[in-house]
Write a protein that binds this DNA or RNA. Structure first.
Length: 817
DNA sequence: CTAGCCATGCTTTTT
DNA sequence: GCATGGCTAG
């Protein structure tokens, strides 16, 4: 959440006289911001429009509490949506008040709950080293259960069951409570309840929580053990929640639990327990913690996943006496961009009217472009990026947004060819790659041997000749002897397998045991800081995992080895930053990283991401691509209640990320599922006043054959298209044949996240200034200069018709003539 | 038990 | 158009 710094000339508001030494905290705030920082009371809602400086306000509010000695750091709990946002907030608070910032809890809902759960796990049948199941783990488990229960016969798929369970958990429902009100005469319902209950049983048996449990079980813990809840209520006196519009019911309930008055004066079990609780004066009964929430209902884009907009719209009812502060001045964007944003969001009914304004002046017009295909559109983006770059804007200040991850492919292809350095946020996530999940499973097998799923996962990775039959036999043996799956491996001799398989199992058991000895020393001795990385290396090499990848001829396996190296490096990094960190800490951190947390902005690359991921970020120049019906708003949203409105908010979030330059682009045809379909301009385009957009190539220009047809903006399904003419002119078949394809590991260095780099490889094509070349899309041209080295050699070409381009020689579809 | 072939379904968004 | 999963042959 990088908001514009709040140094706004000439708007220094009235000074609060109450607090001393806070002038710098209050400097430059507008009156509303000032109130948001200085108001004191039980509950405060800050309605913060996009770019209105909410992060500054939040951090200053925290700093002001600390500096005024109104709170100890340990009494503050600040909750953000992503780890990245949490890190930034911590940094900014530290920047304001220095080291005193340590000891505060600034974290996501999920990390905060994990911390609490780890402390209290033993209260209700878990151990401190429980594992966290991410959605992939959950899916895998449900897949097994659906099969075992033969639930597919009832039309239940792992995905549908997963969705329903998640939804229920977000409503704080569990299998029993759901069963009580479900229509149990319906066999499908009965089956679902059966699955839900079994799923929960399996989680417990595996000593694991899924994502939703982290929140839900914490709420359960607080409700079931009031004295536990009281310790946290005593401790956290100031709770601040960012992105409140995205909270779901479970998160709402958690906040509610934490802000209740402390009823009992039960002795504090942690007071003598080493946990740092600063309690200036010990009062027997304590009123509820003060709550500050910040949100913008216009930016609520996670209803699909249970976020409940009512949490914010009914805040005043839920917390009587709450103060509401509105921040409407935007310090980020030009007025043109804001006017477009206001116009779009104004079409949502049922919202509190709120108009963002800026004193930055109109700025440049919004630029519109309609491509023939998604490749054409991508080329426009790439070209425009180069124009901006030449005008002095760094790549790191530009971002390209899209609705669905699959849209990134076309952009990527063109960017590689045009030598635009880019970085994809999210997409195929590092921690979801098979090899990383395998490595993690090895670690989990050590850290939490009760987690059967992880042990099963690595059982035959690398191939050890252990198949289904053997796996089932081990499971049966474990059950018969009432031991865990993991412990069954230690008795390989009694399993009754052939010598080969027996040896394989014994070896795996030995490797796991050896790693356990390193990473979880039996007695109190502290493991060395490098222990996680060492243990990981040991597991990967002694298990034979790395060797089998290295031996493979599959080029993708080479990239997998690199990814694993990277993962070991992550572990070392972790050790450096957390000298006392245990394997469990490491796994926790890894389980809770998200897309938005990706590697820090290395300067010098354009960022590509979905509009969802873009929330909370800002850039000088923004490209919103694929502004088409069925994409934004997405087709699937049409049938969902509130769907189209949420899509509009998503689009609104996208365009309000831009500071100076906004580009809206679309394509007239788009390949989906390998089929080319006709795309219509998004209805949202019509909602933007025409005067604000400067169309480089409007939908009308592209669609009308012969120029008679009126602008496609208003056209329904205008048949005038399918012809073989314009549609294919660009892109579509522009990609070179895929025969001489080899992965280009060197050029991919910068993008370690991608394994599947099937790309043309010109290899050693020699080019020098003066050469004539032919390009598949751009035709003939002359090489002006060649820069860079090796795989990154770039040809600067002046095309006869297409103008100046930069091309990555290794991959560009070019030939010398 | 594995490898290789074929069919299917997939693309909304994520802590 | 791709990846995954299921099936079959060896």
């Amino acid at each position: 959440m990088t908001e514009a710094p709040l140094i706004v000339p000439g708007t220094a508001g009235p000074r609060s006289s109450g607090a001393e030494g806070q002038d710098d905290l209050l400097a430059g705030l507008n009156p509303q911001q000032l109130e948001a920082v200085t108001y004191r009371g039980p509950a405060l809602l800050i309605v913060a429009g996009a770019g209105s400086g909410k992060t500054s306000v939040l951090t200053r509010r925290i700093a002001s509490l600390l500096r005024g000695r109104e709170a100890w750091p340990s009494q503050i709990l600040a909750i953000t949506f992503t780890n990245k946002a949490a890190g930034e907030m911590r940094e900014r608070v530290a920047g304001l008040i220095g080291d005193a910032a340590r000891g505060m809890w600034i974290s996501t809902f999920h990390s905060a709950c994990v911390r609490i759960l780890r402390r209290e796990a033993e209260q209700f049948g878990f151990t401190k080293s429980f594992t966290i199941y991410d959605s992939g783990d959950t899916r895998a488990l449900l897949k097994r259960l659906v099969k075992e229960h033969e639930a597919d016969a009832y039309g239940l798929t792992p995905a549908s069951v997963m969705g329903r369970i998640s939804k229920l958990k977000n409503e704080l429902s569990d299998a029993e409570s759901y069963a009580r009100q479900a229509n149990m005469s319906d066999p499908v319902e009965r089956k679902f309840v059966e699955l839900f209950a079994d799923y929960q049983r399996q989680l417990r048996k595996a000593n694991a929580f899924d994502f939703d449990d982290l929140i839900g079980q914490t709420v359960y813990l607080f409700r079931a053990f009031p004295q536990v809840a009281d310790t946290y209520r005593r401790r956290f006196r100031h709770i601040l929640v960012d992105e409140y519009q995205d909270t779901n019911h479970a998160q709402y309930a958690l906040i509610h639990e934490l802000t209740r008055p402390v009823s009992s004066d039960a002795p504090d079990p942690y007071a003598s327990n080493g946990m740092m609780i600063f309690e200036p004066e010990t009062t027997p009964a304590l009123e509820g913690a003060s709550l500050t929430v910040v949100g913008d209902s216009d930016q609520s884009i996670y209803a699909f996943r249970g976020a409940d907009i009512r949490n914010i719209s009914e805040f005043e009812r839920d917390f009587p006496g709450a103060r509401v502060v509105l921040l409407e001045q935007n310090y980020r964007s030009t007025q043109n961009i804001l006017s477009a944003a206001n116009a779009v969001i104004g079409n949502n009914f049922d919202r509190k009217d709120k108009k963002l304004w800026s004193d930055k002046g109109d700025g440049d017009a919004i630029i519109g472009f309609t491509g023939y295909s998604q490749h054409d559109e991508a080329q426009f983006v790439a070209d425009e990026i180069e124009v901006l770059r030449r005008a002095g804007m760094p790549y790191s200040e530009m971002a390209v947004f899209y609705r669905t991850n699959s849209q990134s492919r076309a952009l990527e292809e063109i960017f590689i060819r045009s030598a635009v350095p880019y970085k994809i946020m999210g997409g195929t996530k590092f921690y979801e790659r098979a090899e990383i999940k395998d490595a993690l499973a090895y670690l989990v097998a050590v850290a939490n041997p009760a987690d059967e799923m992880s042990v099963r996962r690595i059982l035959n990775k690398p191939r050890r000749g252990i198949g289904d039959v053997t796996e089932t036999a081990i499971a049966r043996f474990a059950e018969e002897h009432d031991i865990s799956f993991r412990d069954a491996l230690a008795n390989s001799a009694q399993l009754g397998f052939g010598p080969k398989i027996q040896a394989a199992i014994a070896h795996l058991d030995a490797v796991l045991a050896e790693a356990t000895a390193i990473m979880l020393p039996a007695s109190g001795e502290l493991p060395a800081p490098t222990t996680v990385a060492d243990g990981l290396s040991l597991l990967l090499s002694k298990s034979g995992y790395l060797d089998s990848l290295r031996a493979s001829r599959d080029p993708q396996d080479e990239a997998r080895v690199e990814n694993l190296d990277e993962f070991v490096a992550v572990a070392r990094d972790f050790a450096r930053n957390n000298p006392e960190g245990t394997i469990v800490d490491f796994l926790t951190e890894v389980a809770l990283v998200s897309d938005a947390d990706d590697l820090d902005d290395e300067s010098g690359t354009v960022s590509l991401m979905t509009m969802h991921t873009a929330k909370g970020l800002e850039y000088d120049a923004v490209f919103v691509t694929g502004v088409e019906e069925d994409l934004i708003p997405h087709r699937i949203s049409a049938g969902e209640p509130g769907g189209p409105q949420e899509e509009r908010r998503l689009f609104y979030v996208g365009i309000t990320r831009a500071r100076k330059r906004l580009h809206l682009s679309l394509a007239m045809t788009r390949a989906q599922f390998g089929e080319v379909t006709v795309a219509m301009p998004s209805r949202f385009l019509q909602e933007i006043p025409a005067a604000l957009i400067d169309w480089r190539q409007s939908p009308g220009d592209v669609n009308s054959r012969g120029g008679m047809q009126s602008r496609a903006l208003n056209a329904r399904r205008s048949g005038g298209f399918g012809g073989s003419g314009s549609g294919d002119r660009f892109g579509v078949k522009a990609l070179p044949g895929r025969d001489s394809l080899k992965p280009l590991s060197t050029a991919m260095d910068k993008f370690p996240n991608r394994v599947t780099a099937k790309m043309r490889d010109n290899g050693d094509l020699e080019l020098t200034a003066g050469d004539r070349i032919r390009h598949v899309d751009f035709g003939e041209g002359r090489v002006d200069a060649v820069t860079g080295e090796g795989a990154k050699r770039i040809a600067h070409v002046r095309f006869d018709t297409a103008g100046q381009k930069k091309l990555l020689i290794k991959v560009a579809p070019i030939e010398k003539i």
